[in-house]
Design a protein around this nucleic acid. Structure first.
Lengths: 236, 236
DNA sequence: CGTCATATTGACTTTAGTCAATAGAAGTGG
DNA sequence: CCACTTCTATTGACTAAAGTCAATATGACG
């Protein structure tokens, strides 16, 4: 269950056997969500944090006029709301972008882990800091890049993150995001996302069909997006 | 020295006497920076984290073409790079927006604190989570709001944060940001910032002169920006 | 087969960016 | 204190990127 999480945290520092065991022994309440299902409600005060086990999820905020902004994407192994441990009420919602399996862990159980295993604490802090690094990169790209470049950059990020989670095969991976959702990630209208995707296709940078994204030449896409994966803190 | 920090962390949970004492006893290397001075270099691997004691600072990223995006603003009491404790190399730079006084604390000293005082650890995690909440709000506003609204929102945020740090007097506070810097915060061109500021002035929402921002009617500005301070987790 | 979500297209509008010039302010050296 | 430089703010004219509205396809699914 917690394999992905352990794999992810090991990118920060190798975990000792007892630390791995403690993570594996975390009491998970596993629940499946349909596409669109709300995993965490905005403004709630969760008593547990949720880890994505399968599928894709996203954090989002709704504005008074109904607009939506997606502020992060989660893949298997990511905590969708670890910060709810210390920060309540929670300032955003989390929903499943695809059918998703989620493991809910009580805050009590997480705290017990923190008290007992300082290295696990630091690894979880690293996970939170990594979230922050991705947020900063998104801010930068959203503020300073064109729609075409933003999408290219997003696809690069997903490619590397999915690869880190072992979800890339033959340069392609499942991407269950609609064009409206891509727009909500990048702060763009659906129409403009559509046109920018067509441009990326025309330029041979992506093949996107059947909820699957193929990147024929990741080097070319990286170049267009000026993508530097350093901020993802992957192992080399 | 650490008064602002203790005050800020107390917003999360009251600290015991020994915890306050431990924070006060942190060995700070104090250093002054001129306006524009770089406090943390992008890509470096700091051995210490830095706390802003006086002035204003910002985190920023530079893009290959020379564009700059400011990804957060710090006020007194904020750690500018607490995350460098766990996340190296650091993915952004930090510079002083005004003459600034900074306290540098060795990571070793912070770690000693973490091991000894679990509640301080949680308070620092809360500080990191708060950074994340502000980032998410910025992403949302940047993605979904006009320049006029973005600036209004930013000024509301600063008003409430500065007020929380006791820096607001008569509805005004020192704001040592140039229009170019405001543009780099919001992802706008300098020219467009200038015009949007004029519109805000024309509408009587702000008075900005001599590096001082006056907000005659914060309620009106809050309304225009659709600003909800909940994400700042201030005390009511 | 019909319904609903998603994707695509065209025509038009709006927002924001770019370029270039000018004006003001602040700081520096003599 | 003045001349000079440099940064910052402002303005106008023009361009480009992205949004809006509305219609039409396409596709998944009960």
């Amino acid at each position: 269950m917690t394999d992905y999480l352990i794999r992810k945290l090991s990118r920060y520092a190798p975990l000792a056997e007892d630390e791995r065991a403690a993570l594996s022994a975390l009491p998970l309440r596993v629940r499946d969500y349909p596409r669109g299902g709300v995993i965490v409600h905005q403004g709630s005060r969760p008593e547990e944090s949720s880890m994505l086990l399968e599928g894709i999820a996203f954090r989002y905020k709704l504005l008074p006029d109904g607009a939506r902004q997606i502020v992060s994407l989660q893949i298997p192994g990511d905590f969708v709301d670890l910060h709810s441990l210390v920060l309540k009420p929670i300032d955003h919602a989390v929903a499943a972008a695809s059918p998703a399996r989620v493991g809910h862990v009580s805050h009590q159980a997480v705290e017990a882990l923190l008290v007992r295993y300082p290295r696990v604490t630091r690894a979880l802090m690293w996970g939170m800091a990594l979230d922050g690094a991705i947020n900063r990169e998104w801010l930068t790209i959203m503020g300073r890049r064109s729609a075409y470049e933003q999408l290219a950059h997003l696809f690069c990020e997903l490619y590397f993150r999915m690869d880190g989670a072992g979800q890339v095969e033959d340069g392609s991976f499942r991407l269950e995001l609609t064009q409206a959702e891509l727009g909500d990630v990048c702060g763009l209208s659906t129409v403009h996302v559509n046109r920018s995707l067509q441009a990326l296709r025309r330029d041979g940078l992506i093949v996107l069909e059947n909820h699957r994204l193929s990147i024929p030449d990741i080097g070319a896409l990286v170049k267009v997006a000026e993508f530097d994966p350093a901020y993802l803190h992957l192992l080399e």
